[in-house]
Computed example of a mutant assay.
Amino acid sequence: MNNHAATQRSGPRRHAAARPAAWPFVLAALISLAGMAASFKFFIKTTTGQYMDESALVEAAVVGERIGTQVAQVLDLLPATSLVIAVLVILFVTLARRRWKAAGFALVAMAAANLSTQLIKAGLPDRPDLGVNTLALNSLPSGHSTLAASAAAAVFLVVSPRWRPAAAFVGGSYAVIAGISTLINQWHRPSDVLAAFFVVAFWTALAALVVMRTGPGWNVWLGADKHWASSRWWPALAALLALLAGAAAFLILRSVSGATSTTSYFLLGVGQIMVVGYGLTVAGTLLLTLPVRRRSRR
């Protein structure tokens, strides 16, 4: 009995000695910042970017008419619904598993992402006049998309490693759908959604480093074949969707100079949202599972 208790007490210390390196998380945060800056520079500061963005927003009206008012109303609820789901899941995990620190850092990251979005939106200048018929008011990043993505990221941070691959895919899909819904309802342009995803990714990467280092006792990887939520199929499916969306966006981009449908730029915008959304999903899954996988082999 004493030996077993001693083993339990020594376990966390042994895991804590193998803390994950900080540089992958810092690098991920810097890449996210670069993505945010690139979204602003191309879609706001260039004529081509403005035209693509505004065309997608205009064509979204056609899609909105086709799917009907009821479907659009359901899409309206997605960002707020994601917040309720995230709070309930975090509350359950915190009370059931006593992951107080992880829950705290996840909520701080969620709040920081949403606050940053509002500050960036207020601080960035209006869209410059580059000859494109568009509203000058800056709408980047999307607050609705930030809310949905940050809620999904908060759940991703608090669940144990065996649940993270599935949680990342489900949460990433939810954020992608919520982002597309803001486009369909003509609340935001595609670039607004992309910028929101990068803002959330920045704070998630920083919070992930703290979560991984303050919860070594439960950040333990059992193996991809030990639980259905740990399956390699989750990141593989996200990567496949990102690749397919990227290929479709590339083909649409090549065809827009010729005869196109009335929704070409809208579909291009959807493809961009899916590429970034699912691409970040894969990156986040690898970022938080690879360190515990290496540690479990030691």
Rank of each mutant, 00 (worst) to 15 (best):
V26Q: 07
A28C: 11
A17Y: 08
W23C: 00
T182Q: 14
T47A: 15
S82C: 13
L209I: 02
T69L: 14
L91P: 01
Q118P: 01
A154I: 04
A96T: 12
A102T: 15
F105D: 05
Y174Q: 03
M1G: 12
L253F: 12
T117A: 07
L57N: 12
A201S: 09
A166W: 08
F250K: 07
A167E: 00
A34E: 04
L251K: 10
A38Q: 05
G131S: 08
L77T: 11
R189Q: 11
L75G: 12
L83E: 08
H15T: 09
A80D: 09
V58S: 13
A236S: 14
T182S: 07
P141I: 00
T48L: 13
A16Y: 07
L287P: 02
Y278N: 03
A112T: 06
R66H: 14
L57R: 15
G143W: 00
R254I: 11
L268T: 03
A28G: 12
V87E: 06
F198G: 00
R295Y: 05
N114H: 11
L253C: 05
L253Q: 13
V87M: 14
R164E: 05
M1I: 09
R14S: 10
A37H: 09
H144D: 10
V270M: 08
L267H: 14
A113I: 05
R189T: 03
K226V: 03
T182W: 02
T69P: 04
W187G: 08
S230R: 04
A239H: 06
P125G: 09
A5T: 10
L290I: 14
L107N: 01
G11K: 13
F105L: 14
A17E: 11
R164V: 02
G64M: 10
G258R: 05
L57V: 09
